[in-house]
Simulated assay, not measured.
Amino acid sequence: MTTTPPTGSEQGLSGPLAGVVVLDLSRVLAGPYATMLLSDLGATVIKVESPQGDETRTWRPPERDGESTYFQSVNRNKQSIALDLGDEQDRETLEALLVRADVLVENFKPGGLARFGLDYPTLSEKYPGLIYASLSGFGHEGPGAKLPGYDVLAQGASGLMHVTGSPDGEPTKAGVAVVDVISGLHLYGAVLAALYERASSGKGQHLTANLMLSMLSGLVNQTSAAANTGNSPRRMGNEHPSLFPYGPFRTADGEIIIACGNNGQFARLCTALGCPEAAEDSRWQTMAGRNEHRDPLRDLLEEKLGQQSSEHWSAALREVGVPSAPINDVVGGLDFARQLGMEPTVELTREDGTSAASVAHPVKWSRSEVSYRSAPPRLDENREQILRWLQV
């Protein structure tokens, strides 16, 4: 561990993870997302890339100032150095980084780093305090170790696509790489716990996560239902298997989301819509009854909602404590967060005057600092500073 950051621009680095050094050998999304969250909390994250760079640098459009917005989404606060692991001098540079590292994160194919002498058994002998975090698609042992780790494969294999989409339609992929995101969050949490454990044991350890188990965990109630009953949940479109009303409902000019999780919220909804007697109807007095008699209840609710606009109902329902929200596009989502007094984005400016908008860290701390120190780095941008730091 070192408290001295590799770049002069980060002197005075603070945050709950200040002094923690992370070597990020991962690419694409899950690993970089985890390491970016660590960097937001003050960790020094050095992104070790191949001479060709993280492939998401080339994933465009969309782009801003010639830079991929995909790459920008998960790589702020990092320093980049390009190293060819097949080159002896570059491996020596990586070894020098390892001397100072607390954490290494990688998503090479299982066993892929062994040929460079960078596998966990080898490095744990040299650096017993190193926390070595590995991410794969379908496990690091057994037949799954040979399978490629793409988000869409895990969406399909886990059952997520089977429960996503219209009841009479095809299995549908989620609109974002949700498996990668969940896997990154799981890895982030595991690294934090391993750092905490090391404070008492003095020892590092090997953390292995994979997309498949992360998504099965992320399916929560759906996986629990399958495990406990042996029956696979079915596709229900925008419906919830256990709650009603819970989802989009038509209004005079569009749709609005309504989510009633208990009888009190349902009664307030009925009163706001001008049909308080519906809450006393024997068919709908309980959640089980509302689930069983969804169709007539939907017809009644949409008849009432159809008398006013979505904007009207959104305000009216919030006023009486009925959970509701508009259905926005992503730009609208950012605007809605701002309307609620949130600051969903930050602007990060480079020395050359170009900048990148970055989605803010989602957790606020009452004492500790979350920091936005630098825009996503260009390939090998910080080589000189890092080498000076290492005195190589």
Rank of each mutant, 00 (worst) to 15 (best):
P167F: 09
L118F: 03
G175A: 09
L118G: 02
I131W: 00
G156R: 09
S158L: 02
L118C: 15
A177F: 02
Y120R: 02
G137K: 15
S201L: 14
G202V: 08
A157H: 06
L147W: 13
S200H: 05
H140Q: 03
G189W: 15
F138W: 06
V178Y: 13
E170K: 13
A154C: 06
A154N: 03
G165S: 06
Q155C: 05
G169D: 08
G139S: 15
Y120H: 09
Y127F: 09
T172Y: 00
A174W: 14
L147H: 04
D151H: 08
S136V: 10
A157T: 06
V176I: 08
F138C: 10
E197P: 03
V191N: 09
R198C: 03
E125T: 15
S124T: 14
L192I: 13
P167L: 05
G129M: 03
G156K: 02
G156V: 13
H162Q: 06
P143W: 09
E197I: 04
L185I: 12
K146W: 10
P148Q: 07
H140W: 05
M161F: 07
G149P: 02
D180Q: 11
L118H: 08
Y132P: 09
L195C: 07
Y150F: 11
S134A: 10
E170C: 07
V163T: 14
V179N: 14
P128E: 06
A133Q: 00
Y132L: 14
Y127S: 01
P148W: 12
Q155W: 01
E197R: 12
V179D: 08
V179E: 11
S183T: 14
G175K: 09
G149E: 11
Y132Q: 05
P148S: 14
A145T: 14
I182G: 12
S201Q: 12
S136G: 15
G117K: 00
V163R: 00
H140V: 10
T122V: 15
G165D: 07
H186D: 08
L153S: 11
L123K: 01
G159Y: 05
V163Y: 00
G159A: 15
V179C: 04
Y188E: 02
A193Y: 08
